[in-house]
């Protein structure tokens, strides 16, 4: 590690282990600078004199709340509006029409898993709003979940800086779906009412979130350790409705095992959940095999 960094090397290793254990994510060796800057800010916010004092307290006292804050600030990603434009085009041209057809007037539920500062859920909401112009009977609700962090709080406010709204967001979308507020831009109420956010430990049981027609989990898989990848996809499988979609990033390699999903032909980053298994209401009565008669060995026919 470079001499300009103040954190003790043993602490850096311990933080890497903590991130792997708590979130299943590998921090690379090149993350040292990120650890310093991110945690330096957190230490100040939490009222510590410096970074080492906070980390001393973290490992000395084993505060769970602090551990989650530390890990979430280390995992906070710099996100853009319209991340993965190719993927969004597929949602627009293939997934929304399919869900519209299948939903028959029901509210379509979409989950943005690991939503960070909220640009993905709001970009989705813009696509849904545009789709609704030609399909007025289509209704959707979008939920964004991620670890508790300042990024998620900003998502909940729907407030973005001058710089953030210019990364990935076309100007026509900015003036149609945002209001100016001083130096910042705020998501308009019509769009905001479609989107909710929830603090969530991404490796915990997902059952409480409900079931979804589309789950987006994009460009994060590669950071997870192999056991965590299996764990997270298995849990995601439990919250996707039968015959509905799980979508990864356009350039991601999908896991080879199926976890109750099939690949969607023509779209390498989309999986479709198996149909609901047909379970008969009453267990069929199987014909019982006739009881075997006990034949003592001595009576058994002996070879001639």
């Amino acid at each position: 590690m470079s001499g300009v960094l103040s954190l003790k090397p043993s602490y850096y290793e311990a933080l890497k282990r903590l991130t792997l254990e708590l979130a299943g994510v590998h921090l690379g060796d090149d993350h040292a600078f990120l650890v310093e800057t991110r945690l330096g800010v957190l230490a100040r916010q939490e009222g510590y004199q410096n970074l080492n004092q906070m980390v001393d307290d973290l490992f000395g006292q084993g505060h769970t709340r602090l551990a989650i804050k530390v890990v979430s600030s280390l995992l906070e990603r710099d996100t853009h509006f319209n991340p993965d434009p190719d993927g969004l085009k597929v949602i627009e041209s293939f997934i929304l029409p399919a869900l519209h057809k299948a939903s028959a007037g029901q509210v379509v539920k979409i989950l943005s898993f690991a939503c960070s500062s909220g640009q993905e859920p709001f970009s989705l909401a813009i696509i849904v709003e545009k789709f609704r112009q030609s399909h007025p009977d289509f209704n959707a609700s979008i939920l964004g979940v991620d670890y508790p962090s300042p990024a998620l709080s900003r998502a909940q406010d729907g407030r973005y800086t001058h710089f953030e709204v210019q990364r990935g967001l076309p100007i026509r979308d900015l003036i149609s779906y945002f209001d100016r507020s001083g130096e910042d831009w705020i998501v308009k109420p019509t769009l905001k009412s479609m989107v909710n956010f929830k603090e969530f430990h991404l490796l915990s049981k997902l059952d409480g979130l409900g079931e979804f027609d589309l789950v987006l989990f994009r460009n994060s898989l590669a950071y997870y350790s192999s056991p965590a990848q299996i764990r997270v996809i298995r849990s995601l499988s439990s919250i996707v409705k039968p015959e509905r979609y799980l979508m990864f990033g356009s350039k991601e390699n999908l896991p080879s095992s199926s976890y109750n999903f099939d690949k969607v032909e023509g779209y390498k980053n989309i999986l479709i959940k198996h149909p609901k298994p047909i379970v008969p209401e009453v267990e069929p009565e199987l014909p019982k095999p006739p009881p075997k008669e006990y034949v003592p060995d001595s009576v058994k026919a002996k070879p001639a």
């Binding site: 853009h80 001058h162 710089f163 210019q166 990364r167 990935g168 076309p170 100007i171």
Partner: peptide, 15 residues
Amino acid sequence: EYIMKPFDSDILASK
């Protein structure tokens, strides 16, 4: 398209 000053290389590339 429309870029609001100040801008940076990230914004220019994105637009």
